[in-house]
Simulated assay, not measured.
Amino acid sequence: SDPRTTRFSGLVNGVLRSLARAKDAELAPALAATSEAPQWFAERLTAAYGAEKARAILAAHRHEAPVDFTVKADPALWAERLGGIVLPTGTVRVERLSANVIDLPGFADGAWWVQDTAASLPARLFGDISGKRVADLCAAPGGKTAQLILAGADVTAVDTSKNRLARLKQNLDRLGLTADLVQTDLLDYRPAELFDAVLLDAPCSSTGTVRRHPDVPWTKTMADVEKLAALQRRLLAHAVGFVRPGGRIVFSNCSLDPIEGEELYGA
Rank of each mutant, 00 (worst) to 15 (best):
S1R: 14
D2Y: 11
P3Q: 12
R4M: 06
R4I: 03
T6K: 15
S9L: 14
S9P: 00
L11E: 11
G14L: 09
G14H: 07
G14M: 08
V15D: 01
R17S: 15
S18E: 13
L19P: 01
R21E: 14
R21G: 03
K23L: 11
D24W: 00
L27R: 12
A28Q: 11
A32M: 07
S35Y: 01
E36Q: 15
P38A: 13
W40V: 06
W40H: 10
F41C: 04
R44Q: 13
L45A: 13
T46F: 00
A47E: 14
A47W: 03
G50N: 03
E52A: 15
A54I: 12
I57N: 07
L58D: 07
R62D: 02
D68Y: 03
F69H: 04
F69I: 07
V71T: 08
A73T: 12
D74C: 11
A76H: 08
A76Q: 14
E80W: 00
R81Q: 14
G83K: 10
L87G: 00
P88S: 13
T89H: 03
G90K: 11
G90P: 03
T91W: 01
R93T: 02
V94Q: 07
E95R: 11
L97E: 05
S98Q: 14
I102N: 05
I102H: 12
F107P: 00
D109N: 07
G110N: 06
A111N: 02
A111C: 09
A119W: 04
A119K: 00
R124I: 03
G127T: 06
S130I: 01
S130W: 01
S130C: 14
S130E: 15
L137N: 02
C138K: 08
C138W: 06
A140V: 03
G142S: 01
Q147T: 03
G152H: 09
A153H: 04
A153Q: 01
V155K: 08
V158H: 09
V158Q: 12
V158G: 11
R164H: 08
R164S: 12
R167H: 08
R167D: 13
K169Q: 14
R174T: 04
L175Y: 02
G176I: 09
G176T: 05
L177C: 02
A179K: 02
V182I: 15
Y189F: 15
P191Q: 12
P191M: 13
P191L: 14
A192F: 01
E193L: 13
L194Q: 15
D196Q: 07
D196C: 06
A197Y: 06
V198C: 10
D201F: 06
A202Y: 05
P203I: 04
P203N: 06
S205N: 11
G208T: 07
R211T: 12
H213V: 02
P214M: 11
D215M: 08
V216L: 03
V216F: 02
P217Q: 09
W218Q: 04
W218E: 08
K220G: 02
A223Q: 14
D224M: 05
V225I: 12
A229K: 07
R234N: 06
L236V: 05
V240H: 06
F242K: 07
V243F: 04
R244P: 00
P245M: 10
I249R: 05
S252K: 06
P258D: 10
I259M: 15
E262Y: 00
Y265A: 15
Y265E: 15
Y265D: 08
G266H: 12
G266W: 11
A267Y: 10
